[in-house]
């Protein structure tokens, strides 16, 4: 890695103050993603702003109406939290499936949401910079793309967002608290992510903005399912988070979100509409799953993701409804 200065604020305001200016430091939390990019040499920041000492960004709090999780909560804490497991099962499942125990010990909620794509062209210092690194070309589009997008593939960049927590939080209607200078702004989590037309970034936060927390309204049933080639520690080739309000066996206000299939987590509104207000059955789940994958435009090597994602939608729906797939 290049040599860099390490800045360690202890409170949010000091941190956001440090993020102002011409060439602000890069925010580091657990560092799992950032250090990977720095070790590869595709990012060489002159200074890091290590926010891990800001205790106020830690913790998981539940009230009657919402669950609020600090940006520095680790994936291990989220996966193990009784409150999260009970109130936001999809999130607990997503956090528990991510990476490995060693990574989950350190990786944070904020870092997971704001990590960069795992596109192997973007991540290799041996390639000329691609669109993601300010270059002119997406090498994946006509290259090796079994891990790439099946939605939004007409956009210039076909990388996928790798976060497993993101689709879960989108499905849970979460909001994020973002601090800029002295102002706290809340916005829907969906607004944090960008599509493949914004190539050089994987999130919409400005360099001087700090993700402080995520809040989840309570009262939704949810589930998360992901598919990876290996049984553990593998990047999801596709994932699905679903949630709905369960009213006498009927799914109201459903959310169906796919991950690892597009530049951002994608809600599948047509599928949601097909499910809304109906009693879930395996047959209906199959129809909804088919709808969820309508409009997918796979690349040369990733058509298989459609069938997998379909299965995940079905399984997530049935899991959320307590009707596990199978018999």
């Amino acid at each position: 890695m290049n040599a860099f200065d390490l800045l360690r604020p202890r409170d949010i305001e000091t941190a956001t103050k440090a993020l102002k200016g011409e060439s602000p430091p890069v925010v580091k939390a657990g560092g799992m993603d950032l250090l990977d990019r720095m070790k590869e040499g595709i990012d060489r920041p002159a200074a890091l702003l290590d926010i891990q000492k800001i205790d106020s960004l830690r913790g998981i709090d539940a009230t009657q109406s919402s669950l609020t999780i600090g940006a520095l909560a680790t994936l291990a804490e989220i996966a193990a939290s009784e409150a999260v497991r009970k109130q936001a099962r999809a999130l607990a499942e997503a956090a528990g499936e991510a990476a490995t125990p060693q990574v989950r010990s350190v990786a944070t909620l904020g870092g997971n949401l704001l990590q960069r794509s795992r596109c192997w062209y973007y991540r290799s210092s041996d390639f000329e910079p691609c669109l993601k690194r300010g270059g002119k070309e997406c090498f994946a589009k006509e290259g090796r793309n079994k891990i790439h997008a099946i939605f939004g593939t007409e956009a210039p960049c076909v990388a996928v967002h790798p976060s497993s927590l993101a689709p879960a939080l989108v499905a849970l209607d979460a909001t994020v608290g973002v601090v800029r200078e002295k102002t706290l702004v809340t916005k829907p989590i969906a607004d944090v992510f960008v599509d493949g037309t914004t190539c050089d970034r994987d999130h919409a936060l400005a360099p001087d903005e700090l993700l402080a927390s995520v809040s989840i309204p309570l009262g939704r049933r949810s589930a998360y399912r992901e598919f990876q080639e290996r049984a553990t520690y593998d990047w999801a080739l596709a994932s699905c988070a679903v949630s709905f309000v369960w009213r006498d066996g009927v799914c109201a206000e459903p959310r169906i979100v796919l991950g690892a299939v597009a530049h951002r987590p994608v809600r599948r509104e047509a599928a949601e509409a097909h499910l809304a207000g109906k009693k879930l059955t395996p047959e209906l789940a199959r129809e909804v799953a088919a709808k969820a994958l309508e409009g997918a435009k796979p690349l040369a090597e990733n058509g298989y993701k459609i069938q997998i994602a379909r299965a995940l939608v079905m399984r997530a729906l049935l899991a959320a409804a307590g009707m596990e797939a199978g018999k």
Binding site: S56, L57, R58, G59, T63
Partner: peptide, 15 residues
Amino acid sequence: EERDGVSRRQFLKGV
């Protein structure tokens, strides 16, 4: 009120 980890009082203390 359910709590995990750091108490709510400390939560976002710095802001």
